[in-house]
């Protein structure tokens, strides 16, 4: 079974500050995942702000290099791709960025982000054909070409800018789309339209999707499997139904319980975790990263970092509550632990 894109035990440490007061941030710690060629799937990646989601996407795209571990594209280290391989990689792996304010050049009309890939990858034989292609892609995600093209980025709403990025990714019909919060700024109706489109891309064209989000509900709707990150570590991973319907890690349980229900008669549950959780900046070597917020903390939780326990065939959890299950290696994720189907 060929693996298209794989992160193998990657760790990313950012250092900042001066020569003497260096601060290290462990954005990701020993994370593995693989996207296989044979079965195009949708993998959800969820976690709170700063948990390392965007860092993971940037590593997979080769924008940044891992501090430890490797990112492999069709078995070859991203760092060592030849020119041709790199071009192929750029076409086959597309990204939808989180912050639509950042990716646009304010001096170019938004058309630029659409016409550039059409030209670069020779998607159309003529200008008219290219324009048609672009208009189709825009309409598919609920944008009126007449009201979108020819405008500057600041003339569009946040959600409109975000959708242009979706249109761009879909134009290229890549093998993999890394979507970093593609719907965080749009309303429920458009969110449904966009997700439906992303799913179509998956089902019709066999495009695999990494769906990065903090929205568990949409992750549940669209994904086959899910990775829950907490402060850079995978705390729970596996089949989406299992993880969402019966979350095992205390953090995943908290996430599921915090979803606001669109029903005024069903009150938000009370939160028992401390409100002020400071950002950790150093690697926690001494125990579970969640121990400060965890209602189930045990003595061992403060001593050793928990490994991943495989609680059943399709799921693994990094928590001592499941210490009777067998320990699995992190890089088994996506190989031994994954969706049921």
């Amino acid at each position: 079974m060929t693996v298209l894109l794989e992160a193998r035990n990657v760790t990313k440490v950012f250092s900042s500050g001066g020569l003497f007061k260096r601060k290290e941030t462990v954005a990701l710690e020993n994370v593995s995942l693989s996207i296989k060629e044979s079965s195009p799937s949708i993998t959800g990646v969820v976690g709170e702000t700063g948990s390392g989601k965007t860092t993971l996407a940037r590593l997979l795209l080769g924008f940044i290099a891992p501090t430890e571990g490797k990112v492999l594209y069709k078995g070859g280290d991203l760092k060592r791709l030849s020119r041709d391989e790199r071009l192929e990689f750029q076409r086959e792996v597309q990204v939808i960025f989180q912050d639509p304010f950042e990716v646009y050049n304010p001096f170019y009309k938004v058309d630029h982000v659409l016409t550039t890939p059409v030209a670069k990858f020779h998607l159309a034989r003529s200008k008219t054909q290219g324009r048609k292609l672009i208009e189709h892609a825009l309409q598919a995600i609920g944008l009126q070409p007449e009201e979108t093209l020819g405008r500057y980025p600041h003339q569009l709403s946040g959600g409109q800018r975000q959708r242009i990025m979706v249109a761009r990714a879909s134009l290229l019909k890549p093998r993999i789309i890394l979507a970093d919060e593609p719907v965080s700024m749009v309303d429920a109706s458009l969110r449904a339209t966009i997700l439906e489109n992303l799913r179509k891309l998956n089902q019709k064209f066999g495009i695999s999707l990494l769906y990065i989000t903090h929205d568990l509900t949409t992750a549940y709707q669209i994904s086959d499997n899910i990775i829950v990150l907490y402060q850079g570590s995978v705390v729970e991973v596996g089949d989406i139904e299992l993880v969402i319907k019966n979350p095992q890690h205390p953090y995943t349980q908290l996430l599921v319980a915090s979803i606001p229900v669109p029903d005024p008669d069903q009150r938000w549950g009370q939160d028992s975790t401390p409100v002020l959780v400071s950002k950790t900046s150093a690697k926690v070597n001494w125990g579970c990263k969640f121990v400060g917020r965890c209602p189930f903390g045990m003595p061992i939780c403060g001593k050793d970092p928990p490994p991943l326990f495989q609680t059943d065939g399709y799921r693994a959890v990094r928590c001592y509550l499941y210490k009777d299950a067998s320990v699995i290696a992190g890089n088994a994720i996506g190989k031994d632990v994954g969706p049921k189907r």
Binding site: S189, A192, T193, R199, L216, T217, Y220
Partner: peptide
Amino acid sequence: CPPSLEEKGQFKGIPGLPPLLL
């Protein structure tokens, strides 16, 4: 519209495009 954890797989977007404001 909002998807829920109860039923999976149904996206209920509102058909049609948002109107042209111009």
